[in-house]
Design a protein around this nucleic acid. Structure first.
Lengths: 146, 146
DNA sequence: GTGTAGAACTTGATGCGTCAAGTTGATGTT
DNA sequence: AACATCAACTTGACGCATCAAGTTCTACAC
């Protein structure tokens, strides 16, 4: 669990000149129908803090891969939208990433272990997010019940 | 796999004022009979680059948790040894860490999934380390066959 | 209609990780 | 004996993450 994320990140940077986390952000956006998402929602989907996301989005915006726009009439909400250039970048990076995941993980496992891994993943995520103080990144206020 | 290391690291810093990686270093040393290890070997066991380890060991030395000493008559090799204070720190931090691992992972899994996880771990490690250029951290020159 | 609380970010300082380049010993090579 | 090479680190610069503090809206209270 220590080595895999590191390995995927290293490969991402070598092959596509971006962080694994940057890829996640772009990738999540690319899967939305309008390639747009509110910052908080994006942070939740990328399991990052709003602060981290803000920094990263700032950089990606400078690179022209996405754009920010205030949502009018609704608090201080901000939308981020993938640009064409940004979409092209994700599309170019995706196959390499998928190949890496296969190579390091999926192709190495028997079907039963793959299923086990899925169970483990959800179990761990649940366990972490039911701690004494569920993190803001995991369950942002806008999705929290009153 | 993204969330678990992050969660364990966060807890380590909250409860024991050190990085998860710092804990690993101290912990590995504490398991040696003489609480001593050569830098390269330590790097391999902690799956880190020599550079990273050097920085971290520098900090831990400043905190008085370990000490460095040149190995005489053998290249430029350096030993790091856990101090008493360092040992006490590991001993104090260990129970909390074990509890965290149980809470987030082990206690959540059925026995068969735990066994699967073990298989997955070794499979992934192998897959990563047989890449085109096996990393120096994983197989340091001193352990590499000619 | 002022005041307070809170949500949704943004910003700046600090610290750790990484990469490239430098040191320092030992081991051959000619 | 001089030189090149290599292994085992160390160091410095730079980038990214985190934390605490600030900003900017809305909404509700009185």
């Amino acid at each position: 669990m220590i080595s895999l994320p590191a390995a995927l990140d290293a490969r991402m940077q070598r092959e596509s000149q971006m962080t694994f986390f940057e890829y996640m952000v772009l990738s999540v956006l690319s899967e939305e129908p309008d390639r747009t998402m509110q910052m908080s929602a994006l942070a939740a989907r990328a399991s990052a803090s709003l602060s981290r996301l803000s920094h990263v989005v700032g950089r990606l915006e400078k690179r022209g891969l996405l754009a920010r726009s205030r949502i009018p009439g609704a608090g201080r909400r901000t939308n981020t939208t993938l640009t064409e250039a940004g979409y092209d970048v994700v599309v170019a990076a995706a196959p390499g990433h998928v190949a890496a995941v296969r190579e390091y993980l999926i192709d190495e496992l028997e079907p039963r272990d793959l299923k086990a891994l899925q169970r483990i993943g959800t179990a761990v995520e649940t366990a972490i997010n039911r701690g004494p103080a569920p993190s803001a990144a995991a369950t942002p206020a806008s999705q929290r019940r009153p």
